[in-house]
């Protein structure tokens, strides 16, 4: 293996331009795919952070007994898609309201009796935070005897969620497409590189070199090119990400986009290696069949 590696490195210096072009091609295609992956990852993060904040306010009738309040709470908590239900008494609600409107305290001076109802704040579990499911859940809640009204007015969230879902799907599909494009570009680049070395390979075959002896440095070169291309792409992507964050900063809801997770970076790096190896495998299989008898 040491000999193969030495021959590979020697070959890198002998065909520096050819290898350089291959690395550059791999890094460019992986950069595009990686950028799409970054959009998808951040889009997913935005959606899940928003989904985790979906709540339904359940207002109760006036004058119901504490046992009815407790029973309603239990019913709400055992409903499918409900993460938890927090009771907010009418007094707590008023205190909160007054605190939030501390500047206009005089508004409450002539209030007399507290007009706010007792309520439950029902937190919807993220996996159930689809608009259609929330609608169904709300319809079930309003049927409970102690419930007067249900409010789940963040319909804009549903629309944005659907939009981001679309972005996620499209981005994912495009990233996949670019990864496939990367594979074919690498395959063709390696094939061209092999054709430019056709005479050399033919001479090796004539002096009795085994397929392994001929192919091993080419595979190693493919793997190194793929790994190097992926590393360059990740570094370039990180640079672009830093630039973007410094210029744009926090976007919607002060959401700061994050860079690819360690797992995603690992996948991109491994994909680079795979692309280098597989491009080499496909080209070599075809090439050796053409050159051998």
């Amino acid at each position: 293996m040491r000999d193969h590696m030495q021959r590979t490195l020697k070959d890198f210096t002998a065909h520096a331009f050819l290898h350089g072009i291959t690395v550059l091609t791999i890094s460019l295609t992986i950069l595009i795919a990686g950028a799409l992956l970054l959009v998808v990852e951040n889009g997913t993060a935005v959606i899940s952070s928003w989904k985790s904040g979906v709540t339904v306010m359940v207002y109760l009738h006036d004058g119901i007994s504490s046992s009815e309040v407790e029973a309603t709470g239990r019913s709400l908590e055992t409903m499918g898609g409900v993460k938890g239900a927090t009771f907010i008494s009418r007094d707590e609600a008023l205190t909160d309201l007054m605190e939030s409107m501390a500047g206009q305290r005089s508004l409450f001076d002539d209030l007399g009796e507290n007009p706010l109802p007792d309520a439950y704040e029902v937190e919807v579990s993220p996996e159930a935070a689809e608009w259609s499911r929330v609608e169904v859940m709300a319809a079930a809640m309003v049927k409970l005897s102690a419930v007067d009204e249900v409010e789940y007015g963040r319909s804009w969230l549903a629309r944005v969620s659907r939009l981001l879902g679309l972005v996620e799907l499209t981005g994912g599909a495009l990233a996949l497409l670019f990864f496939i494009v990367a594979l074919f570009i690498v395959y063709n680049t390696v094939r061209l590189a092999l054709y430019s070395r056709r005479d050399e390979i033919e001479i090796m075959q004539l002096v009795g070199a085994t397929g392994n002896f001929i192919k091993m440095p080419l595979y190693l070169a493919g793997i190194i090119e793929g790994g190097l291309g992926a590393l360059i792409a990740l570094m370039a992507l990180f640079g672009a990400y830093l630039l973007f964050v410094s210029k744009v900063g926090g976007g919607v809801d002060d959401f700061v986009p994050s860079f690819l997770s360690i797992g995603a970076m690992g996948v991109v790096f491994l994909y680079g290696i795979f692309v280098g190896w597989f491009g080499c495998f496909l080209s070599l299989r075809e090439f050796m069949q053409e050159t051998a008898v």
């Binding site: 065909h15 050399e200 001479i203 075959q205 009795g208 085994t210």
Partner: peptide
Amino acid sequence: ARREIPFLRRRFGIIFQDFKLIAHR
């Protein structure tokens, strides 16, 4: 068998009119 071809070729020394030397070696 195809895998035996390299070992067959090691028993031959082949010379061509156009030399067939590897240019970068």
